[in-house]
């Protein structure tokens, strides 16, 4: 996990234009107003949701798809593409 990098002055700058860390500090989950929820009883582990996630936030844990709500922006492509309708949509409070 990258911490936010604090550049106060010239001394903290790298020698050339380059990246010093990944964007994973940016928890895009706060953008979401609709939440996809996987029903594991209906799910056949086809991983189509994993395949079509534009935020790469459906993780594979023990051969199961798990949505990382820290980053899920709530685009609902997973719910739309699920062939078994195993992903329901819940309104965020």
């Amino acid at each position: 996990m990258t911490e936010k990098i604090d550049i106060k002055g010239e001394k903290d700058m790298p020698a050339m234009a380059m990246s010093l860390g990944l964007m994973d500090w940016n928890k895009t989950g706060s953008w979401r107003n609709l939440r996809p929820v996987i029903d594991y009883e209906k799910c056949t582990r086809c991983m189509i949701c994993w395949k079509f996630c534009p935020d790469a936030c459906i993780l594979i844990r023990d051969e199961e798809p798990v949505i990382d709500y820290d980053y899920c922006k709530g685009c609902l492509i997973c719910a739309e593409e699920c062939p078994r309708d195993a992903i329901s949509v819940v309104k965020e409070e």
Binding site: L22, K27, D55, I60, Y71, K73
Partner: peptide, 21 residues
């Protein structure tokens, strides 16, 4: 579980694209 495309992920979550990009 059978994956049809490589599992390796070189794109990090947390990027600034719009929803459903």
């Amino acid at each position: 579980m059978k994956l049809t495309i490589p599992e390796q992920e070189l794109m990090q979550s947390g990027h600034l694209a719009c929803q459903g990009c």
